[in-house]
Design a protein around this nucleic acid. Structure first.
Lengths: 194, 194
DNA sequence: GTCTATATCTCGATAGAC
DNA sequence: GTCTATCGAGATATAGAC
């Protein structure tokens, strides 16, 4: 029963290497070196490289779902849950500055490769979008989906520029701006001239 | 003197193919098929694939500089110039939904490849950042560089999600939100309690 | 299950005829 | 300047011993 364990290690290493170096640029030799197994051994666990990618995306979907559930548990109010999302940019700050956002960069790469796994990769965005929309809905906002996509859009823009410029001050400033935008978005609108 | 013409065609085709399919995934065979020359002929014009990438980035820097100058000429006010930047998302809407932003996706890819041309690719961001900051400065804003990076951040986030979801309504909505943000940013602040 | 050895392909790059 | 022919490296994938 060592097999299942090896398979898990392969998927974990592939997940990390696909994030750090991209899917196409990561070879079996790279993964084999990380897991310390022979190249030929891959094909006992996976039929092809695309099948490893499928498993990596499935793993990310599981872990993201678990992360969102953990955020639900740790934060009692929808407002504090939105802050948990914003804080992810700080928690993963160093990785984002080095490699960008794992969700966005994979979706962009698979789009350019016209890879069939592009759809499943975009499903990772769906998880965040639906969870964010749920929070805005709970706060009584009028357009929870649009507001969810707006926050997702900001996180992606921040990740791209954080990776380009590698400036922690930029990330901190834009995180604060996200918090301000959230506060304004969930404040009931008053007419300009009362 | 056909040589210079061929070189220009190679760089133009490489520019388009690097954008559509990514740098690493685009082969000499792909470029050769587009320009209709033999593979071996590349090495009369370029020493290596990296040298073609250098030429592509140089071409993009030139063309972006020309675009910004054209925006300056066509728009008399700094405010209308900022709108020209926003409108780029609509002008290139179909390409962005299909391939993402050419600047952001190249910078992200070269970062993952740890390619030496990452710096020159990020210089494309600098052109937009400095030009945007110039407009905010002309409008008397207090933090023109930060505001420039904020607009750049939004355009990148919109491009990533536009490529993921391919929803023109999302792009249109976020373009309008960018215009609203600009109007609020350039409005002289009044104290909350007059 | 894991290994070694190898087949097959594509890539970037080179050599030399024209 | 452009071509054909080809090299060597590295990729995915397969075959078969253990």
């Amino acid at each position: 029963m060592r097999g299942a364990e090896t398979r898990t290690e392969i998927v974990g290493a592939a997940d990390r290497l696909f994030y750090q170096g991209g899917f196409a640029h990561t070879s079996f030799a790279d993964i084999a070196a990380a897991v310390q197994i022979a190249r030929g051994n891959f094909y006992y666990h996976f039929k092809s490289k695309d099948e490893i990618l499928e498993a990596v995306i499935a793993r990310r979907l599981e872990r993201t779902t678990a992360l969102l559930a953990q955020w639900d548990e740790a934060n009692p109010t929808p407002r504090s849950r939105l802050s948990a999302f914003v804080r992810l940019l700080a928690v993963n700050g160093d990785k984002i500055m080095a490699y960008g956002c794992p969700v966005g960069s994979l979706a962009t790469e698979l789009s350019k490769l016209m890879h069939e796994a592009r759809g499943p990769a975009v499903a990772l965005f769906d998880l965040f979008r639906d969870w964010l929309a749920e929070q805005f809905r709970a706060l009584g906002c009028s357009e929870p989906e649009a507001q969810a996509l707006h926050l997702l859009m900001r996180s992606q823009g921040i990740a791209v520029l954080a990776n380009a410029y590698r400036d922690p001050a930029f990330v901190a400033r834009e995180m604060a701006a996200m918090e301000d935008w959230i506060d304004a978005a969930i404040t009931p609108q008053r007419p300009a001239i009362p």
